[in-house]
C-alpha cells in the first residue's frame, strides 16, 4: 500500500468504519463514500485546483490509489468526472462554511486569481543582466543571448481571506522568457526584501547535490540539473541562494 494511502479502522456507534488517509489532507470514509468534511464532488473540485491537468492528476494522485481494491469506486469517480468539474473559484472558496475545508481550498486557488481579488503591494524590485545559451527547435546551439531580468516582491493582506489567520502573504512576480507571460509564486517572509533570493528559493534541491552542479537549465517550471558527476540525491532539500541560482543557470526558456 502506498505511503499516501494509510488505512485505519475505528469503531463509531457500534459500527466498524474504515478510513484511508489520502494525499492533500483528504480522509476517505469507506462506509459512507465521503472524503473528510466534504463530498466526493467537492473533493474533486478541490483536487482539480491543485492538479490542473489530467495527466498530472493521474500521475501524482490517482496512481497512488489505483491498486487498492477498497478505493476502486473512488478512483473511478475521480477519473471519470475530472473533465466535467471545475476547480473552486476564489469567490466560491469564500462561501465554504467549514473553516478546515475552506483553508484547504484556498491552498488550491490559483495565486494569480487570488492576487487579482485581494490586491498586492509591491515591496522591492531587482534586476540582473544575464547571459544565456540558446537552442533552435532541434536542439542545435545558437549564439548566446544577453538580456535583463526583473523580479518583484509583493505583500498581500492575509486577513482578507477571513481564515482566522492573522498573516501577511508574500509573493514574487516574474516574466517567462519564452512567452513573456507574468507569473506569481508564493515565497516565505524571509525573502520579501530580496527579489533575486526570492526567485532562487523557488528551486530546492537535495543538499548533497548542490556542490556537484555543473550547470542549470530551466524550462518553465522544471529545472534540469546537469551534474559534474553521478550523485544519488539524499538528505535535506534546501533552497538555492541567489548566487547559486544566477551563477549556475546557463539556459532558460
Amino acid at each position: 500500500m502506498s505511503l499516501h494511502c494509510l488505512s485505519f479502522a475505528a469503531q463509531t456507534n457500534n459500527t466498524m468504519e474504515t478510513y484511508f488517509h489520502l494525499k492533500n489532507n483528504l480522509t476517505y470514509r469507506l462506509n459512507k463514500n465521503q472524503l473528510g468534511e466534504c463530498t466526493c464532488l467537492e473533493a474533486l473540485r478541490y483536487l482539480k485546483g491543485i492538479y490542473t491537468n489530467k495527466e498530472r492528476f493521474q500521475e501524482r494522485y490517482l496512481k497512488n490509489i489505483a491498486s487498492i481494491p477498497e478505493l476502486h469506486k473512488l478512483h473511478s469517480y475521480l477519473l471519470n468526472n475530472y473533465d466535467s468539474v471545475e476547480a473552486f473559484s476564489f469567490k466560491e472558496a469564500f462561501q465554504i462554511e467549514s473553516l478546515g475545508f475552506k483553508r484547504m481550498v484556498f491552498d488550491s486557488i490559483n495565486i494569480t486569481e487570488m492576487i487579482n481579488n485581494l490586491g498586492a503591494t509591491r515591496l522591492q524590485v531587482a534586476g540582473k543582466q544575464v547571459t544565456r545559451k540558446q537552442y533552435d527547435h532541434f536542439g542545435d546551439s545558437l549564439p548566446e543571448t544577453n538580456y535583463h531580468v526583473i523580479y518583484e516582491t509583493y505583500t498581500i493582506d492575509g486577513r482578507l481571506l477571513e481564515l482566522k489567520l492573522d498573516i501577511n502573504l508574500f509573493a514574487v512576480k516574474c516574466w517567462c522568457t519564452s512567452t513573456n507571460k507574468e507569473h506569481w509564486l508564493w515565497i516565505e517572509e524571509e525573502y520579501k526584501d530580496d527579489p533575486l533570493a526570492a526567485i532562487a528559493s523557488t528551486f530546492r534541491f537535495h543538499e548533497n547535490v548542490i556542490p556537484h552542479i555543473k550547470e542549470l537549465k530551466r524550462q518553465g517550471d522544471i529545472m534540469l540539473v546537469e551534474m559534474k558527476t553521478e550523485v544519488n540525491p539524499k538528505g535535506k532539500i534546501i533552497p538555492l541562494t541567489a548566487d547559486q541560482y544566477f551563477n549556475l543557470l546557463t539556459a532558460e526558456s
Binding site: F106, L165, W186, I187, T202, L224, V225, E226, V231, S253
Partner: peptide
C-alpha cells in the same frame, strides 16, 4: 517553452517549488 539541450550524462530533474502561505 523553447527547446533545451543537456550536455552532461548525469542529470537530475526537479520541479519549481513554492511554500503555500495558508
Amino acid at each position: 517553452h523553447g527547446t533545451l539541450k543537456t550536455e552532461s550524462p548525469h542529470v537530475l530533474k526537479y520541479v519549481q517549488q513554492e511554500l503555500n502561505p495558508v
